[in-house]
C-alpha cells in the first residue's frame, strides 16, 4: 500500500505536469468536490457576466444584456471607439458617485474573441474541461491558472465589486484553497 500511494503521488505530480494518469480515488473525490466551489465562483454573475459565448457582455446580478449594445470588440477591450475603459476605470468609483456608477478594476475587459473562456451555460463537466483547455484559457497551465485566480486584480474585483452588486458568494481564500485542491489533483472533472 505504501509503495502504491507513493506511486500515485508521483503520478499525481506528473498529472500536474500534464500527464494523463489520474490521482487516487480519495484525492480525486476531494478535488471533484472542491470543483463545485470553483464552479460556483466561475459561474457567479461577477465573473460569468463577461465569460460569455456571444459578443455582448451581461450586467447586474440578474445577468441582463449590457445596455448600450456594449461589444467584446477585436481584443476583448470593447468596441473600437467605445473601449471598456470609457466607463470602467482602474478602480470602483468612489461611493460618493452613487451605487449605480460603473465599477472598475485594472484591465477591465472580456476575454479576447479567440479565447473566450466561456463559462456561461456550461455544465460542471464542460466548465471543468474548459478551464484547463489551453486553447480557451489563454494558454495557462494549472500553476498559471492558480496565480490568475489568486492574484489577478480583475478577478479579485469579484470580491469587492462596489455599489450594491453582490460579491462572489465564496470567500476568496476558500475559493483559492479549493481551486488548489482541484488543481493539485490534476483537475479531475465531475461526471454527468
Amino acid at each position: 500500500m505504501f509503495r502504491l500511494s507513493r506511486i500515485v503521488a508521483v503520478v499525481a505530480a506528473a498529472v500536474l505536469a500534464g500527464c494523463n494518469s489520474g490521482p487516487d480515488p480519495a484525492q480525486r473525490q476531494a478535488a471533484v468536490e472542491a470543483f463545485a466551489t470553483v464552479q460556483k465562483v466561475f459561474q457567479h454573475p461577477r465573473c460569468q457576466n463577461c465569460h460569455i459565448p456571444g459578443d455582448q457582455p451581461l450586467q447586474f446580478d440578474q445577468g441582463l444584456p449590457h445596455a448600450m449594445g456594449v461589444a467584446r470588440g477585436p481584443t476583448g477591450h470593447g468596441a473600437e471607439g467605445l473601449p471598456c475603459s470609457t466607463c470602467h476605470g482602474e478602480a470602483n468609483a468612489p461611493d460618493s458617485y452613487g451605487p449605480h456608477a460603473p465599477p472598475g478594476a485594472p484591465h477591465w475587459a472580456l476575454p479576447p474573441p479567440q479565447q473566450r473562456m466561456v463559462t456561461l451555460g456550461l455544465s460542471p463537466p464542460e466548465l471543468c474541461r474548459m478551464i484547463q483547455d489551453r486553447n480557451e484559457n489563454g494558454g495557462r497551465d494549472f500553476a498559471a491558472l492558480l496565480k490568475h485566480v489568486s492574484e489577478d486584480k480583475l478577478v479579485l474585483w469579484g470580491w469587492n465589486p462596489g455599489g450594491t452588486r453582490a460579491p462572489v458568494s465564496v470567500p476568496h481564500a476558500e475559493f483559492v484553497a479549493k481551486f488548489r485542491t482541484w488543481a493539485d489533483a490534476g483537475g479531475p472533472c465531475p461526471t454527468g
Binding site: 456594449v70 473600437e80 471607439g81 467605445l82
Partner: peptide, 22 residues
C-alpha cells in the same frame, strides 16, 4: 464619433451601433 473614427476610419453601421449606443 471622433473616437470611433480614430479607432476605425471606415466604420460600418454595426461599428457605429457598438461605439455610439452609449
Amino acid at each position: 464619433a471622433a473616437a470611433l473614427l480614430k479607432a476605425k476610419p471606415e466604420p460600418s453601421d454595426a461599428d457605429i451601433d457598438a461605439a455610439l449606443s452609449g
